[in-house]
């Protein structure tokens, strides 16, 4: 069970949250001009990194707000959390 710190509510247990995958994926601004490859990239391709990963969580059973987390996918250590719109922390690994 992960202990996740919501930037608005503080530390809560994992079962209050839902996972929303990789962070900082920008929705296409001009979708009608996208090629098939670009659509595939936007819809299906994820970094899926082993190690430091920037990802989105939603505090579904709490404040219901989205936020970003910097987590190590091998150790499950959550190094930092930050609000949407904020830039990701420096990679100090």
């Amino acid at each position: 069970m992960l202990l996740i710190e919501c930037p608005w509510c503080g530390p809560r247990e994992e079962s209050e949250f839902s996972y929303s995958g990789e962070a900082h994926i920008v929705r296409p601004l001009q979708p009608e001009e996208l090629s098939d490859e670009e659509w595939a990239d936007y819809l299906f391709y994820r970094k899926n990194l082993r190690g430091r990963y920037l990802e989105q969580w939603n505090h579904a059973a709490g404040c219901r707000r989205f936020f970003n987390a910097e987590r190590d996918t091998v150790t499950n250590e959550i190094k930092s959390v930050y609000k949407p719109g904020e830039s990701p922390p420096e990679d100090d690994s």
Binding site: M1, S15, G21, Y53, E55, R71, T73, V74, T75, N76
Partner: peptide, 11 residues
């Protein structure tokens, strides 16, 4: 959630 830990959550 994504993970390479070969370990999951009890929930």
């Amino acid at each position: 959630y994504n993970g390479y830990a070969q370990r999951g959550s009890p929930s």
